[in-house]
Design a protein around this nucleic acid. Structure first.
Lengths: 279, 279
DNA sequence: GCAAATTTGTTCGTATGTATT
DNA sequence: CAATACATACGAACAAATTTG
């Protein structure tokens, strides 16, 4: 029942970090010092440090040393804003995903962050299987995908990809395949062009390890540590006596730098009462 | 700029897994076989396998071998249900956190899952710093914490801890310190006993590595792989001309087994149109 | 029930490469 | 260039878990 030595060392170091005995940003003892201090082989203390590193508690840099990770102020994103039942046109407007311009990240401005985006990368492709299910179309059908890369304060912040049935383009929504932002957002464009009115949407949130392209863009270490949070939104319109999905947007965010917020009923302004950020 | 050998091996194995050449649940070659196959030392192929393991792609079991992880059907939890403005009493009722009984997990029943809970573990403690901020009370103040352990299908599903200012007990809400469920939930109890009416709440979602006690209960491997999703809810009441937080509930869920869903406006039933679950 | 074989887990030692100052 | 510190790679030995004969 005795713990392996590298776990004991890791637990000891973790306790020192969490108690503040080793402060944020401070340098850990070098591997040689740890080797002597714990009376273990260098490989063994490396196992311990790797455990902490894979948990994100410390970061190692060759030639410099190993440092306690600084927790950065997270980007706060408000998900489901209060419903806007009296707005004309679309009955519901969401904070994350409707707009393609800077409106989509207005919340970041309020936090004193400066958001920016790459233009959309537009591709026509065979539907990914999962997207086909959400859009209610047959696997193998063509879809238009529009991918944006978002930055906040110059740091990568999110990857957002929207999928539309290709038939929308054939029906006249030709701007969908132009690599430019759609004024007012794609939902408004589809309403103008095809008369599709968004009456609601469903968002699914999950956390998972990053794909390699995601890890690369979001600057997540490619060693399996850290994960991404994805917010997948299916937008619905009324049609044929039932609700029909007409767009899917997937937003991928780095888990260690974001907080998602949902307000229900009457709540104070975020500035007045900070959102819970669990340590 | 050449990739380290253990990464090349990991990439090769990952490609085989993702292409299906090694099926879900199938056994990887043993470390000895991999050593011969890749012409590397055993420690090197172990590094490669560890990388995949920390990403959750494979699981190793002593004496048996290493197997491709089976992706389980996730538990779907609906977060912000449609607002209930016409309900008497509390203006807003939430799906996750208001009720202490089985109502809180009714959604699981609909999925054919059988939820169960341990009784609450009640403690009176000094306020954790973060909780103090959300409750708007001074650090060092006493709070009542009520922790529930939830299971679904016999598997651990979530840890839920609610915090209340201790003054509520002194003011007459003495049942808060009893280790029993409160009929109708604690929000209803506080309204009956103290006249506190919940007018809204804010939920903050984030993903982070598990604390060691969380990893233990949720049966997450203690090797840093995997993370937890936390949903922290601050509940507000109207008072003194402003909104005052009166309760904080933190729910901790295993990231690899859950999906959070938010509905806005008109959406189909979940059973009719499956929530997006991004692969 | 027990012993052997198989497979992963832990620990050590050593050597060399690479990034930073 | 030299010193420092982490990264990679190899080899070896023993421990612990599991299955099989």
């Amino acid at each position: 029942m005795t713990e392996p030595m590298y776990r004991q060392i890791a637990d000891d170091l973790r306790a020192q970090i969490e108690s503040g005995a080793i402060a944020q940003g401070a340098k850990l003892p070098t591997e040689s010092e740890l080797r002597v201090g714990y009376g273990a082989a260098r490989n063994t203390v490396r196992e311990a440090v790797k455990l902490l590193s894979s948990r994100g508690l410390v970061e190692s840099r060759p030639g410099l040393g190993t440092f306690v990770t600084r927790s950065a102020r997270p980007f706060v994103t408000t998900l489901a804003a209060a419903p806007l039942p009296e707005a004309g046109g679309a009955a519901y407007a969401g904070a994350l995903g409707d707009s393609e311009g800077t409106e989509a990240v207005a919340g970041l401005n309020e936090q004193g962050r400066t958001p920016s985006a790459s233009g959309p990368l537009v591709t026509v492709q065979t539907t990914p299987d999962d997207v086909a299910v959400w859009l209610g179309i047959s696997p193998g059908t063509q879809v238009v995908s529009r991918r944006w890369e978002w930055f906040a304060d110059g740091r990568p912040w999110s990857l957002r990809t929207s999928y539309y049935p290709f038939e929308f383009v054939a029906s006249g929504a030709t701007d969908l395949v132009r690599a430019e932002g759609l004024p007012g957002g794609s939902v408004a464009y589809l309403e103008r062009r095809l008369g599709l009115v968004q009456v609601g949407y469903r968002e699914s949130i999950l956390a998972r390890p990053p794909a390699s392209d995601e890890a690369k863009f979001l600057e997540l270490p490619d060693d399996g540590r850290g994960c991404v949070v994805t917010v997948a939104r299916a937008s619905y319109r009324q049609g044929e006596g039932r609700l029909i999905p007409f767009r899917v947007t997937v937003t991928v965010l780095p888990a260690d730098r974001i907080v998602l917020v949902i307000n229900s009923g009457e709540v104070p302004d975020l500035a007045d009462h900070t959102a819970p950020e669990v340590a």
